[in-house]
């Protein structure tokens, strides 16, 4: 797992260098890099992604970590996240506000103690959920701004998201008296750095 984080980190560096230094962007080079705090995928997480659907949405791969100094049970996650923009408000030439986004992500937590399939010594259907995979839905928002801080004109974005996963959602649906929606929600915040210099 640590190797995976190192590889991803190197990939990000290579991407960052090659994309920022050459104008010949390769097709597979990501459109943006992401760093996130919390959000049920790690204390911190980082990764890269692509803008899709005429930049109305994004898909990204994030690796998250909960280090040992944060929790006595350290964790790593690999996440595939889809975020769509629903409302966009152009504040001025440099700043766009997106007050409503919605999306979903799959969080995979590797480790022999977290089975993704039911191990062989359980009868079929003994547990219906996977320990290793969580499915999350969320809404959120972001603000994007153009900046010259990085030596050239670049888009940067700050975002938040608030959502839940399938096992908390099913707990809430069956217990609307004892639980409130605030019981099951979790939040994350993050930043994205875009390689494109064209602000939409």
């Amino acid at each position: 797992m640590k190797r995976l984080i190192v590889v991803l980190g190197m990939l990000c560096c290579i991407t960052f260098n090659s994309v920022s230094q050459s104008l010949n962007r390769r097709w597979y080079m990501p459109d943006f890099l992401t760093a996130q705090y919390a959000g049920s995928i790690g204390f911190i997480s980082g990764g890269a992604g692509y803008e899709i659907f005429r930049k109305k949405a994004g898909v990204e791969l994030l690796v998250g970590v909960v280090p040992g100094f944060i929790d006595s049970a350290p964790l790593e996650t690999i996440n595939l996240k889809f975020t769509g923009s629903i409302i966009n408000v152009k504040i001025n030439e440099a700043v766009t506000l997106t007050p409503l986004t919605a999306g979903l992500f799959f969080c995979y937590t590797p480790g022999i103690e977290y089975s993704s399939d039911l191990p062989s010594w359980y009868p079929e259907g003994y547990y219906w959920w996977s320990e290793a995979v969580r499915v999350n839905i969320f809404i959120g928002g972001h603000v994007s701004a153009m900046t010259d801080r990085f030596g050239r004109s670049r888009k940067v974005q700050a975002y938040y998201e608030i959502g839940t996963n399938e096992i908390k959602l099913v707990s809430y649906i069956q217990n609307s008296d004892a639980l409130t929606v605030w019981n099951i929600l979790h939040a994350g915040i993050g930043v994205r750095y875009f390689f494109s210099d064209i602000h939409r």
């Binding site: 919390a38 995928i41 979790h186």
Partner: peptide, 16 residues
């Protein structure tokens, strides 16, 4: 501030 806000969850399996 972020640590104090209980909405910020690091992982469903956190043990604190």
């Amino acid at each position: 501030l972020l640590g104090a806000c209980s909405l910020f969850e690091y992982h469903p399996y956190e043990t604190n």
